[in-house]
Amino acid sequence: MTVPADAPPRRRRPGQRVPVALAVPAALGLLFLVLPLIGLLARTPWDSLPQRLTAPGVLTALRLSVQSATLATLLCLALGVPLAWLLARAQFPGRRIVRALVTVPLVLPPVVGGLALLLVFGRRGLLGQWLDTTFGVTLPFTTTGVVLAEAFVAMPFLVIAVEGALRGADSRYEEAATTLGAGRWTTFTQVTLPLIAPGVAAGAVLCWARALGEFGATITFAGNYPGRTQTMPLAVYLALETDLEAAIVLSLILLTVSVAILAGLRDRWIGHP
């Protein structure tokens, strides 16, 4: 292969055509993800949609879902970003084990996660017993319980995304800041965080989406009571018991709201370089 010495090196990919070996599985993958959504749309009772949207309880569950997912994401940001920093930047024995432990909620069936939370924060749990006798605080069956259950399940998504961003970030900026006399905390807030902001945003979005769809840990740890702990996924599940169409409508509302919020945020946060 010869390149004319005076021409700038061409970076253009050979042709604009996607290889068939990639295009076919990619299309199948997309179809696999989208078809169930089409199935939902096909069975949506469009005529009765307005009445169903305004049915009692729907807005309450939606508001509770968005609020608790947002609070859970804030909790995950407050705890998860430092944890990710520790995993990516600090040297300490047993780091690999800690990293494996962080992913436990990913592999644990959410119902088991909820049970585990009950065994710790429940009225007779390891910490819950003490919380109850000392402060009179019980977490199960409360909105706080919903937030905790969602944060437990969603935090690994944030930690993994942020840790990846930290590993990808050029640590020479941080070294330069240190050389110029900045302390570790100043370096973290003034250099590291802005550097990994897109990664944090992406992690937060994943985390929020996972929290919004959380079902198993929530119903096990926080129970199901309208207005207090009944989030949209719980409402969908119970609607499914008696009324398939109501369940479909509830799922569509949840999907629409989450896609709208995510798309809106994407433009604001991740969109600009």
Binding site: L115, P140, F141, I219, T220, A222, G223, N224, Y225, P226, T229, Q230, L234, Y237, L238, E241
Partner: peptide, 14 residues
């Protein structure tokens, strides 16, 4: 009630 469980085993587990 504090919770309306999805099935009887859920209520019993609590």
């Amino acid at each position: 009630p504090v919770t309306l469980e999805q099935d009887v085993k859920g209520a019993l587990a609590k």
